[in-house]
Design a binder for these strands. Structure first.
Lengths: 332, 332
DNA sequence: CTGTTAGCGCGTTCAC
DNA sequence: GTGAACGCGCTAACAG
């Protein structure tokens, strides 16, 4: 590769100074129409492209935001990423994608990288970090948004799914349909959203004045396999259960399989409810009853919070997205 | 936010010159153990983090690669992105994620942005650009890899799925099972992989010495909805078809729905075969026969090609990934 | 072993 | 309307 064209190449070729080139590029100051057109001609002819690296060094803005997710292969986050990228692109921002692979050390490492790259902001999803660690982390960026995680009292921009409401809706639906012994595959033990859904689960039982047992709860990996093995384990320990609430749709699909393994038929003997309403949910057999959440919208909102900060808005935004129960055959 | 700590802050605090700090940071040159430890102490105490943007300006390397995909919400690309990111991370690179949304203008726009950001390389997936345009585009980066797309003769790094083989395997399997009138939902008209699979489809018929009709082909959007409506349209136009080969698994799931709409039962009256073997494929009813391709591996290989270029390897790599037919109930 | 001098490519003062 | 200086934060040559 030959040396890249620089601003001075353009300036020399057009017979003007660096300043004039800079001015036409940024539409700043007054430049006579004649020289402006001449400069623009040279820029096109030479195929000159200003270096964002050099520009960032002086403007102290990179036009880049970091997106940190546990796993981009999980449909929840890949769709969220789409929303982030779409909104970012519309405002001229780029997105650095980082997977933590559910590993806190790696989460810290990618956050350091993003700091080194001087991103203008960070969108941190489902962080597995402790509160102090997280607080310290977010304070190192010009702006940051937490998704699926709360911290302090309105100190930091946040986009949340109202998981407590979701857990309550799902549980209430099951109770309404006459199921009273409802198991709950709660996902990763440290999961914020999992604990929120558990609150909703407990609240629904309390609302209905029905007793339940903590033995009906079981943590699991947030995957199909995690759901399958956990469902088997829970159903064997508690054969009297008549429904399974699941951390997310992947776990619910696994639960479906676990039920099949044990010759438990869904929904006649066992109702299964998921969370998220990923594409899969409507397509498995039986189709999943689940809490619908538009993760594309979650991504858009998160990016929008960053943008409003970039625009000078001083107060943190707090967006709460309400899930809606979608009733399908797995829990009619 | 207060001013960031810079190298001169560290130098002043440690009582040394900028160069010495730089040297301990990069483990270059010789520094006495005493001063090295003193400097490292100051760095930790101040929480200093070198600016990658300043460093990039002088080293002319950003430690960042661009990943351009049609749609990160498509499982194929989100898993590929995971592979790219994993391999990149292991070698200290970051990934800028860009969606083209199947729009050539947007594809050109994101490629310009990546050029402006001075990425060290680009991974361009399923490009919809014309050959000349594409040639011009890739030549603007220090390194680039094409995925799911060929260009020239071994001029550029390439990772391909052997889609012709896949099309042949799938079609031959259907012919072997006694199905002779096989429709093909070919996906987007400009799709490279679609046209390759069509070659395999034609080749399998030729191998078997069986006649087929171009009326059995129909283009469609690469989505569930696209597959559903296309399947209905094709089956109504050609009621004699006994099998449907589909551009990808999403289209195949749509085809399953289209068959259900028309009261055509799968697999007894109609066999359906997909491509890619996304998670969904094994979970729908009936489970999909499909061509398995590890898109995670595709992503890893693409990034590996970039890395070998960064390491000075002059010859382009060409990786061909062979799909494997996974036989399930939709086409036994 | 350590410091000094130059830039990397661009925007931001000021003058003219 | 235009240009000459300077600096953003850091590394690559040279000195010493």
């Amino acid at each position: 590769m030959s040396r890249r064209i620089t601003m001075s190449d353009v300036a020399r070729e057009a017979g003007v100074s660096l300043m004039t080139v800079s001015r036409v590029l940024n539409n700043k100051g007054d430049v006579s129409t004649a020289t402006r057109q001449r400069v623009q001609g040279v820029i096109l002819r030479l195929g000159y492209r200003p270096s964002e690296v050099a520009r960032s060094l002086v403007t102290r803005r990179t036009g880049t935001v970091g997106l940190v997710v546990p796993d981009n292969a999980n449909p929840f986050f890949s769709e969220l990423a789409r929303g982030v990228e779409h909104t970012a692109y519309a405002s001229g921002y780029s997105v650095l994608l980082c997977n933590t692979e559910e590993n806190p050390e790696r989460e810290n490492a990618v956050l350091l990288t993003l700091e080194d790259k001087r991103v203008d902001g960070v969108i941190l999803c489902s962080s597995r970090l402790g509160s102090e660690e997280l607080q310290a982390a977010v304070s190192r960026y010009p702006a940051s948004v937490l998704v699926n995680r709360e911290l302090g009292a309105g100190q930091v921009d946040t986009v949340l799914v109202d998981d407590e409401l979701g857990g309550r809706l799902a549980t209430a639906h099951l109770l309404d349909s006459g199921r009273r012994r409802i198991g709950f595959l709660t996902g990763p033990e440290v999961s914020w959203s999992g604990s929120q859904r558990l609150k909703g689960y407990n609240a629904a039982f309390a609302d209905a004045g029905i007793a339940h047992s903590s033995g009906w709860l079981l943590a699991c990996a947030p995957t199909v396999e995690g759901g399958r093995s956990a469902a088997r384990q829970l159903l064997q320990a508690h054969p009297g259960l008549t429904a399974l609430l699941c951390y997310n749709d992947l776990v619910a699909v696994g639960a479906l399989q676990g039920c099949a393994d044990l010759r438990v038929s869904v929904p006649s003997s066992m109702a299964v409810v998921g969370f998220d309403d990923i594409a899969l949910a409507a397509l498995v057999t039986p189709p999943l009853t689940t809490c619908h959440v538009s993760r594309y919208d979650v991504g858009c909102e998160a990016m929008r919070s960053l943008l409003s900060r970039f625009d000078g808005q001083p107060e943190p935004r707090r967006v709460v997205i309400r899930p809606e129960l979608v009733v399908r055959a797995s829990a009619p």
